[in-house]
Design a protein around this nucleic acid. Structure first.
Lengths: 154, 154
DNA sequence: TGGTATAACATGGTATTTTATGGGATTCAA
DNA sequence: TTGAATCCCATAAAATACCATGTTATACCA
């Protein structure tokens, strides 16, 4: 039994006419072992789909409760945006999930999708968009390398 | 049960046409005893593959979560770069892992690879590149030797 | 200490399994 | 009843497990 569960790697899969995509087998293994489900929602800031385990969203709910006021507009807005958008996605016997029109449109995905591991989360991108975004991030992080180091060493 | 786990030594192994390489047996022993897995990714600054234990990356994920905000751009950038590139590598009954095209290309490895221990991490190099890098490092350390000594004795 | 037996290892090759993906059948709901 | 969602089957390719062999390192004994 493994001890660590991380979404990793970058894999490109096809999206068929019905909107079906194979979830990367590594991701499936995590879902199965933890006996949980995948949840997907539109990224708040980027043109991509974001996914995580149900547990992770549960933790987020707690964090939002703890860090914002029950009656605050912030809490209202956040919870509406996130949980109003999120949805469970179970995969079939061949390992595919069916992404909704809403999600596909937001990420501008048509016939190909890129899964990008983010540790506790992952993202699903249009391949061209992801390529641009990756280049942007590399430039950004290399420029600010001291920041990365600082975080690591603390 | 041993108390110390360090990747050490420098081992040269062949890479076959499928990209298979024997993981040094010492490394395998660590993975087995800790009941964990190896994770590899492209070095951010050098033309080599870097590897560590899954636990190490898990700790990093936790550190990033703790030191940056769930919605922050910093967290986004970092996790994309690190976990998007990293991948689990399990070895078969004969002790081999299968390196991906992406990794081999980044490290300019074709038919031979050098494993270099780095303590908690290790690196995999193209033999010629490693030779040059080692010479560079030796020169560098000799140049700064007084500083090194000073630190030790204080 | 020297020599031999034994075990571990690296590595080439092959067999088996898993995975991605297209297509069709069945079920469900509006 | 029609469109959509779910399930099931088929297939090719890729990943993985397994087997065999020569070599090196280790353990053992005289």
């Amino acid at each position: 039994m493994r001890k660590v569960f991380l979404f990793m790697d970058t894999v490109i899969n096809k999206v068929d006419a019905k909107g079906r995509v194979s979830l990367p087998s590594d991701y499936r293994a995590i879902v199965k072992e933890l006996e949980t489900e995948i949840v997907c929602y539109r990224s708040l800031s980027l043109p991509c789909i974001e996914g995580c385990l149900e547990e992770t969203l549960d933790k987020l709910a707690t964090d939002i409760e703890d860090s914002t006021d029950f009656f605050s507009e912030t809490q209202d807005n956040l919870t509406n945006l996130i949980f109003g958008d999120a949805k469970r996605f179970t995969f079939d016997s061949t390992g595919r999930i069916m992404l909704s029109e809403k999600l596909l449109k937001h990420a501008q995905i048509t016939d190909t999708a890129v899964f990008v591991g983010k540790g506790r989360k992952f993202q699903i991108w249009n391949p061209q968009n992801w390529q641009k975004e990756e280049e942007r991030i590399r430039r950004e992080v290399l420029k600010n390398r001291p920041v990365l180091k600082k975080n690591k060493e603390e």
